[in-house]
Amino acid sequence: MRDLVGYGENPPRVEWPGGAKVAVSVVVNFEEGAERSIEAGDARDEDIHIFGGWQADPTRRSLMKESYFEYGSRAGIWRILSLLRRHEVPATFMTCGMALEKSPEVGPAIVREGHEICAHGYRWAGTVGMEPDEELAEIRRCVEAIERTAGVRPQGWYVRDGITENTRGLLRAEGFVYDSNSYGDDLPYFVPTDRGDHLVVPYSGDANDGRFWGNASLATGNELFEVCRDTLDFLATEADGVPRMMSLGIHSRIGGRPSVASGIQSFLEYAVARDDVWFATRAEIAEWWLAAAPATASGAGEAVEVASA
């Protein structure tokens, strides 16, 4: 059953570490090599618009389109890692298992830099339409690939195109702490499953370099900076004793390009200079919420016992 009420007028009063007003979660999506492609044996190439609107026939292999994705693993991911290192900002890398297999140096580098790896599916695709056994196989295949290539077990889950009614119960059974397949709130929240309550750390599509994808609604990195700055400023202003969370979404092949990266750099410089911001991975936010927030299931509307996964 959908929950259209959420916290309503009474959000939980949870104090972030250091008294911060806003927890900022930087998310880097690493998907390159896991997209649909004829070269990989798929029937069709990824059907996307790039470079402001150009599109190739998805039924024919496009080396041009492939090279657009390749930029993310060849150059973009390293530029983003450098930016984060320079500003000492931890991030959550939503990584596809196949992407890490095809770029074996990336997983160890993410872990070495102290970032979190969140499972992003084995392929860059969703699980909508899958039967429970198919979905469980996808979850396990992704986890195995991450463990093998990066040496860590992911605590979080997020997949393209969404999840099924069974996903969260499966995630709890597999030991996941949270998922981020929701755009429905500014704060983490619990949802009931047949295996107990499950934590959702919601994501966001507005402070996100996806705005440059296809028929771009943004043209410059400075515009992305302004969107991110305005988001942070507003959340901090309304955080009167109530926690707020901001997600910044980056994609290696998009935000890793110099023009977009310049806007990300400007935002990091701006946010790091503030004393009311807590930069945290999504796993850190989940851990804090599980320890400090009232144990309420989003769909139940009353207090329940919540066990940390």
Results as ranks from 00 to 15, higher is better:
82 S>D: 15
123 R>E: 10
210 G>P: 08
277 V>Q: 01
33 G>S: 12
17 P>H: 07
164 T>S: 11
283 A>I: 05
184 G>Y: 02
292 A>Y: 00
283 A>R: 13
75 A>R: 13
204 S>D: 06
168 R>M: 13
56 A>W: 08
89 V>C: 04
281 T>R: 09
238 E>V: 11
164 T>C: 08
215 N>K: 15
254 I>D: 00
98 M>Y: 10
213 W>Y: 15
69 F>G: 03
300 A>H: 09
89 V>K: 10
240 D>E: 15
135 E>L: 08
56 A>P: 12
80 I>E: 02
285 I>C: 01
103 S>G: 04
41 G>Y: 00
196 G>V: 15
103 S>V: 10
77 I>S: 07
16 W>D: 09
216 A>L: 06
173 A>G: 09
51 F>P: 01
302 E>M: 11
104 P>F: 02
204 S>Y: 00
101 E>D: 09
296 T>C: 08
98 M>N: 09
231 T>H: 00
90 P>H: 15
53 G>R: 03
303 A>C: 06
156 G>Y: 00
75 A>W: 07
156 G>E: 00
9 E>Q: 13
69 F>I: 08
256 G>K: 06
4 L>G: 14
185 D>C: 11
235 L>H: 03
55 Q>R: 14
127 T>M: 06
210 G>V: 04
95 T>Y: 02
81 L>F: 03
159 V>P: 04
125 A>H: 10
70 E>R: 05
237 T>H: 10
226 E>T: 01
158 Y>W: 10
83 L>Y: 10
91 A>L: 13
120 H>L: 09
49 H>K: 11
102 K>V: 12
178 Y>F: 14
122 Y>N: 04
105 E>H: 11
115 H>F: 05
261 A>I: 10
305 E>F: 07
29 N>V: 12
11 P>W: 08
180 S>H: 09
287 E>M: 07
2 R>F: 14
248 L>Q: 03
169 G>K: 01
250 I>R: 04
282 R>K: 15
250 I>S: 00
102 K>N: 11
179 D>K: 02
240 D>I: 08
301 G>T: 07
307 A>C: 12
55 Q>F: 02
296 T>K: 12
217 S>R: 13
280 A>N: 03
159 V>Y: 05
289 W>R: 02
245 M>K: 10
231 T>N: 00
226 E>I: 00
51 F>W: 08
77 I>Q: 01
172 R>V: 05
155 Q>K: 13
42 D>A: 07
205 G>L: 13
86 R>F: 03
145 A>P: 09
97 G>I: 12
155 Q>I: 00
156 G>N: 10
208 N>S: 12
243 P>Q: 08
133 D>P: 00
300 A>M: 14
160 R>G: 01
121 G>M: 01
171 L>N: 08
192 P>Y: 02
169 G>A: 02
47 D>G: 11
307 A>L: 15
75 A>E: 15
121 G>D: 06
93 F>M: 09
91 A>S: 12
10 N>P: 01
179 D>E: 11
2 R>M: 15
193 T>Q: 07
247 S>E: 04
215 N>A: 11
87 H>R: 12
26 V>S: 01
13 R>T: 15
198 H>R: 06
53 G>K: 03
127 T>A: 07
23 A>G: 09
122 Y>F: 14
240 D>T: 08
282 R>G: 13
222 N>C: 06
4 L>T: 15
50 I>R: 02
178 Y>K: 05
112 R>M: 05
157 W>Q: 07
40 A>P: 01
